[in-house]
Write a protein that binds this DNA or RNA. Structure first.
Lengths: 170, 170
DNA sequence: CCTATAAATTTTAGGCTTAAAGTATTTTTT
DNA sequence: AAAAAATACTTTAAGCCTAAAATTTATAGG
């Protein structure tokens, strides 16, 4: 039998005897490693077959969905990365001739970024291969399992967001 | 009606008419963003409350589990990062006085890395807070949902590993 | 013993990333 | 209109990360 120690009063019980959170920790570790394994495979393929990187691919994917172009600020928000990061990423894509950067019509602070014709052609080829890679990576999961994962990950993300606002110490 | 084009022989059918893989793509995107959201929150808390980074925390976690120390090569494998990366991380932790680096007994090529007394004390405090953060982040998921996620992520990881070895073009 | 190969680590060059400070422009307030 | 605040972006300093080349030490074969 388990020794539960001396009796505790009601107020201190929870903090004195927190149930352990090893399961959540294990889940977080597994989420982390699963993502790492998949991501490093995708990065490797992008590099080997298209001589590009995941951040550049992601940026181009956003632009492909916005034919009229996006500002650096919009890209920063969509890709969830800092402004300064986008500056450098766009710089390198401009050098490669895959995107264009031009002044926004009404605001001289802003710049509109668009795919060049070559950028669009290149992206479409990469996206097609990428879709196949991902399908291959998840090939062993049934449609029902995919759906369950989608739902639970959404729930996890929502839970995480909630804990950021109401969390122990922000 | 859809024009399915000329008849295809059995061998080429699958590759000529792949069903679309948008679901897998969406799942990958969700896995990615879920991990990003959680990870950036954890990084922020590690920085704000302990003035450290996730890679350093992860490295110290490995050392905490190996009281007799680990070589740089072992750390590299466990953390799934390159050798050169570990060199720099250990350098910075040595400067901070959190880890020690000493020659391995039987092989002058190797070095054994261990937590210092302060490193161990510091890590234990961080690990305890970290466990609480993660529990908080996943608070809205039931035990059954945690278990399902664990299982499906393991399956996804296994599927990914398989596709790396047998994949379209390695 | 000597040479070739392997293993452990470091170095190098380059890219990604952030937070914080700085610049230019626009909008709001007074 | 002038001053103040906000917005869009760039720069800076520092850390993380990789692949590939280089260095040092160990091991194996002759």
């Amino acid at each position: 039998m388990e020794d539960i120690g001396p009796p505790l009063d009601a107020e201190t019980k929870v903090t004195e005897r927190p149930h352990d959170h090893k399961d959540e920790l294990r889940l977080w570790l597994r989420l982390f490693t699963t993502k790492t394994v998949i991501e490093s495979e995708i990065r490797r393929r992008l590099r080997d077959r298209f001589d590009t990187t995941l951040p550049r691919f992601d940026l181009m994917a956003q632009l492909d969905k916005s034919p009229s172009g996006m500002t650096l600020g919009e890209l920063s928000q969509r890709l969830m990365v800092s402004n300064g990061n986008i500056t450098g990423l766009v710089d390198r894509l401009v050098v490669q001739g895959l995107v264009d950067r031009r002044a926004a019509p009404n605001d001289r602070r802003s710049q509109l970024v668009t795919l060049t014709a070559e950028g669009r052609r290149t992206f479409r080829a990469m996206a097609s291969a990428h879709e196949d890679w991902v399908a291959d990576i998840f090939a062993d999961l049934s449609a029902a399992e995919l759906e369950t994962l989608m739902r639970l990950l959404a729930k996890a993300k929502a839970s995480a967001h909630k804990s950021m606002n109401t969390g122990t110490d922000k």
